[in-house]
């Protein structure tokens, strides 16, 4: 919590947006394996993630969105180019201050909700009182208060994903990376989770990068949206939405909302067709 205060002060200086993370000429090539040759999955990609912004990445399936997230998180090493987080190079290890929420259910089935959420704290050397405070907050914030002692198997998919978000939240990350976290949820739940995500973003003032395939979702949540091409994925364009910081799912009622989604789709229609063709050719 102490670390949050100075950042809150830093964000409003919008005149010269501070760079929080930087990708410079990043590519990722998978070595040839039995059955197929070398796969050029990603890049080259160069872009700056501004401190405190909500950035989404959309693109056709198989374009390397998840690879981009892995590289940025330090879960994968780029084949060429460099990644920086808060001015320091990222290479093969997740830097302190970065939290990741994955697409798949990553809750630990052998721990209660509470213990799941507290998982990283003991290791990070946070003392017991502070741990309890943060867990209480995260559990309350994600609406898990009544399920503290439940096991993940007793929860729905959406609730389990909240557990994973809470587990990331207690570590107070300054950069939150989300890899299609709502991919498995139904549309109504997605909308509600989106609102919660916006609230979380506003209240923690963290930088958020969201990978998604849902254009409306990207539009609704983001300050900027990076549109990726079919494999090897590169940014075709980065769209600025210009939405106010205080926003929620009712934004979709605005007349100019549809225009942004249309613009994203006009970029992606061709790319998605190309990706489909690649897919069937590969088979």
């Amino acid at each position: 919590m102490t670390a949050a205060a100075p950042r809150l002060a830093a964000v409003p200086s919008e005149a010269a947006p501070k760079v929080h993370a930087r990708l410079d000429g990043v590519t990722r090539v998978y070595p040839p394996r039995a059955g197929h040759g070398e796969v050029h999955a990603l890049g080259p990609i160069s872009f700056d993630l501004r401190a405190g912004e909500f950035f989404s990445v959309v693109g056709p399936s198989g374009c390397g969105k998840s690879t981009l997230l892995d590289v940025l998180a330090g879960l994968a090493v780029p084949s060429a180019g460099s990644v920086e987080f808060e001015g320091k190079p990222v290479r093969g290890e997740v830097p302190d201050g970065v939290g990741v929420v994955f697409q798949e259910d990553a809750s630990f089935p052998w721990l209660t909700v509470e213990d799941n959420v507290a998982f990283g704290l003991r290791r990070a050397g946070v003392d017991a009182a502070e741990s309890r405070r943060r867990v209480d907050f995260a559990v309350g914030f994600m609406g898990l208060k009544d399920f503290r002692r439940a096991y993940p198997s007793q929860l729905s998919g959406g609730m389990r994903q909240r557990v994973c978000i809470a587990r990331t939240l207690v570590m107070q990350p300054r950069l939150i990376l989300l890899d299609e976290p709502f991919g498995a949820l139904d549309q109504q739940t997605r909308l509600l989770m989106g609102d919660e995500l916006l609230r979380l973003w506003r209240e923690t003032s963290a930088t958020v990068l969201l990978i998604t395939h849902a254009l409306d979702e990207a539009n609704l949540l983001s300050d900027r949206i990076g549109v990726m091409s079919a494999r090897p994925g590169r940014f075709i364009d980065i769209v600025e939405t210009g939405w106010p910081r205080e926003r929620d799912s009712r934004l979709a009622e605005r007349p100019d909302f549809g225009a942004v989604t249309s613009r994203l789709w006009s970029y992606l229609r061709g790319e998605s067709l190309r990706a489909l063709g690649q897919g069937s050719a590969a088979r």
Partner: peptide
């Protein structure tokens, strides 16, 4: 994905085995 989570929490190899792989 659980192993990725372990890396996110920067667990050492022993911790990863003890706290993730074995219970899983």
């Amino acid at each position: 994905v659980l192993l990725k989570t372990a890396r996110m929490h920067r667990l050492s190899l022993l911790e990863e085995i003890w706290r993730i792989r074995l219970p899983a």
